[in-house]
Simulated scan of single mutants.
Amino acid sequence: MKQLMPAIQSLLGGPERGTVMSLRTEDIEAYLHVVELGGISAAARRMGLSKSVISKRISDLERELGVSLLQRSTRSIRPSENGRYFYEQARAALRQLDHAAQTVSDAAGELRGELRVLAPMTFGTRWLSPLIAAFARAHPRMNLILELDDKLVDVGYERYDVAIRITRLGDSSLIARRLTVSRRVLCCSPEYAARAGLPQGIEDIAQHACLAYSNSPPAHVWAFAAGDEHGSVRSIAPRGVFTANNGEVLRDAALAGQGLAVLPRFIVWDDLHAGRLVEVLPHLPPVDDGIFAVYPRSGFGSVKLRALVQYLQASLARPPWEEPETAGSLRLLQGGAS
């Protein structure tokens, strides 16, 4: 491990800076991506480069350091002992450099530097991307990176500055800031309602074909407000006939008459308004989710991160999918409901 210390001191700007070696930021970032994503191919896709370029950058970095950073096999690639130590130190050093650059920029009254945002696919494409684009236009010195993925990832390890999550937030080591509420709706197509009828209570749902979201653990448990004065919640395990890891796929299945689905209103609000889908049991709605910005505690003092979160909170204070005229149009085909 001692053989790496001069390189780390050089990277961090220590007493031997400029006297030992010259490390290139692009080589270090390529290495960080390889470690975090578990391979050269994935790192190349993330950085928009060819695999040969990533391989050369890793080789150049190892040659400059004089050690092997990666252990390669036919099935996997992972950091060596030296590589793991260098990864931790280099990641921390780059964060320090970014913080220093932002501190200097703050004095000039502008936001700059890179900000990596992770968001769910459907919410990202339908609602978040225009907001991020407008924020980027207002801050041209920033390099905003928006990546969409429905999988739950380790925000800090994957080097995202902030992740947008739609959930009922539990205990977490991350800082969470609520952006808005995500109301959910039990719905189906008019064709399914005419063919199978509609449940008159939560217990009747078990007799129906249901569509499940596989990225929500457990995938086949739905929670509903019980409608009593205590705010109780009732959970059921419906009969799943179709499962997908994307809300728009489930919406399409519901539109095709395949069964009942619990979906966010931000996905189905226009279908409900147009009558392509109908709300089921509106007086016993599914439990709401929250839409949160979550980020590691190391980002707590970031001015650019705080600016983005505050902008999103203001932009989503009155979400368009919760407009009164939309909510008022959903009481359709509901036995006994007006």
Score class of each variant (00 low, 15 high):
Leu211His: 06
Asn143Pro: 04
Pro286Tyr: 01
Glu110Ser: 14
Arg331Phe: 11
Glu322Ala: 05
Val117Pro: 02
Gly336Val: 14
Ala44Gly: 11
Gly227Ala: 04
Gly240Ala: 15
Ser80Arg: 13
Glu323Thr: 09
Leu118Ala: 06
Glu64Gln: 12
His99Pro: 00
Ala237Leu: 07
Ser68Leu: 03
Pro285Val: 03
Gly259Gln: 01
Lys151Asn: 11
Ile58Val: 14
Leu97Ile: 11
Leu250Lys: 02
Gly18Ala: 05
Ser52Tyr: 11
Ser216Trp: 11
Trp222Asp: 00
Asn143Leu: 15
Asn143Gly: 08
Ala193Phe: 10
Gly113Asn: 12
Cys188Leu: 06
Arg46Ala: 15
Glu279Asp: 02
Gly247Phe: 15
Leu23Ala: 02
Asp270Leu: 15
His139Ile: 09
Arg165His: 13
Ala30Val: 06
Val221Asn: 01
His99Glu: 13
Ala101Cys: 07
Leu144Gln: 07
Pro140Gln: 12
Ile132Ser: 05
Leu115His: 04
Val35Ser: 02
Ser59Gly: 04
Lys2Trp: 09
Asp60Gly: 10
Gln207Gly: 15
Ala107Glu: 13
Pro130Asn: 07
Ile291Asp: 02
Leu144Glu: 00
Asn82Ala: 11
Ser173Arg: 12
Asp228Thr: 08
Asp288Pro: 08
Gln3Cys: 11
Gly83Ala: 07
Leu169Lys: 13
Asn245Trp: 03
Leu144Ala: 06
Val241Trp: 12
Ser189Phe: 10
Tyr295Val: 06
Ala44Arg: 06
Gly38Ser: 00
Leu23Trp: 12
Glu114His: 07
Ala93Val: 01
Ser173Glu: 12
Ser329His: 14
Pro285Phe: 02
Val34Gly: 01
His283Thr: 10
Val278Lys: 08
Ala44His: 05
Gly14Thr: 00
Glu36Phe: 03
Tyr311Lys: 03
Ala136His: 14
Leu281Asp: 00
Leu148Met: 14
Leu65Ile: 07
Pro140Thr: 05
Arg24Glu: 15
Pro296Ser: 05
Ser214Cys: 01
Ile166Ala: 08
Leu148Pro: 02
